[in-house]
């Protein structure tokens, strides 16, 4: 019975612990417990939810800093500009209220499920992940942080301490569309986040589109974004080539053909929501 449960309040202490032992990092526990099932816990646990630095959503210069222990419910209730609307929508649709009150946005990223609901909206916000270790801190673009299913760039000894969202263009609005086989408590078959901003002529001055559950890691559709910027939202067309970054698979929830087929509709709907508010 060597295992211990640590719940430090000081980040350096937490990093010191991580540097000297293999510990399982636990935040909300909403993925951690289901993944373990009944397997007994034999390794130390590091609870990061009492680390003050990991709490809260704050302005960070022109951008925002979201602490790594911030829960979905805190995101949904936060006073944030319209660019975050897609992220907030995702926060209201992940699990149920119980999951939203416990699960954390950063934990969702660290769990690195291809169907992580936090990924697409954060990709459209150009979010970065801040990691801390005894050796110092580093920031990675989100797309470089999650490297594959259940795989991230977090090194042993590092903790994700915050997410950073840079300044967003004035008037940018986010939207999120998720498709599943039931209303609540559902894992996405596919999901799309859009962030869009219009110029005075009603044309797309800014467009970011990201799709989840259709590739090992959620992807931005950069070619589509580039091709459609400057167009009217109603003129947006999604071609086969635009979906090239995606590589959907068949699983228990749906087949690849279905995912490929609904993504353009999700994009259109999310775009409508983002542009019509």
């Amino acid at each position: 019975m060597g295992a211990a449960y640590y719940a430090p309040t000081d980040l350096d202490e937490a990093l010191g612990l991580l540097a000297t032992r293999t510990a399982s990092v636990v935040a909300g526990g909403t993925d951690w417990f289901p993944a373990r099932g009944r397997t007994p816990v034999t390794e130390d646990m590091l609870d990061i939810t009492r680390l003050a630095e990991l709490r809260g959503i704050d302005r960070d210069g022109a951008g925002w800093r979201i602490g790594a222990a911030v829960t979905w419910a805190e995101i949904a209730r936060a006073d944030l500009p319209s660019a975050f609307d897609g992220l907030k929508q995702a926060a209201r649709e992940v699990g149920g209220v119980q999951i939203q009150n416990a699960g954390t946005l950063a934990g969702n990223l660290c769990n690195a499920s291809p169907a992580a609901d936090g990924m697409p909206p954060l990709l459209t916000l150009d979010a970065e992940v801040e990691l801390a270790g005894l050796g110092g801190r580093r920031r990675l673009p989100l797309c470089d942080f999650v490297t594959g299913p259940r795989a991230t760039a977090r090194a042993p000894g590092e903790l994700v301490v915050a997410l950073h969202v840079p300044a967003q263009p004035e008037g940018l609005r986010g939207a999120f569309v998720k498709t599943g086989a039931r209303r609540y408590l559902v894992i996405s078959i596919a999901m799309t986040a859009v962030a869009a901003g219009l110029d005075e002529a009603g044309r797309l001055a800014h467009l970011r589109v990201a799709v989840g559950a259709c590739s090992p890691v959620a992807r931005r559709l950069s070619a589509l974004e580039a091709a459609m910027t400057g167009r009217l939202p109603s003129d947006v067309q999604v071609s086969e080539a635009d979906l090239a970054p995606l590589a959907p698979i068949d699983d228990v929830r749906a087949d690849a053909a279905y995912r490929r087929e609904i993504v353009p509709h999700q994009i259109a709907r999310a775009l409508r929501a983002a542009c019509n508010g």
């Binding site: 449960y5 719940a7 636990v26 909300g28 526990g29 909403t30 951690w32 417990f33 289901p34 099932g37 009944r38 646990m45 609870d47 939810t49 419910a73 699990g95 149920g96 209220v97 119980q98 999951i99 009150n101 416990a102 408590l185």
Partner: peptide, 29 residues
């Protein structure tokens, strides 16, 4: 379910509903 899928174990933790099956007991401190 012990997986946060059914909500039967819902309790209020500092007033907020959570699935008690997903809360490490030590977190109640």
């Amino acid at each position: 379910c012990d997986a946060g899928d059914c909500g039967a174990c819902t309790v209020l933790l500092d007033g907020l509903p959570v699935c008690a099956c997903l809360v490490p007991a030590q977190r109640a401190e």
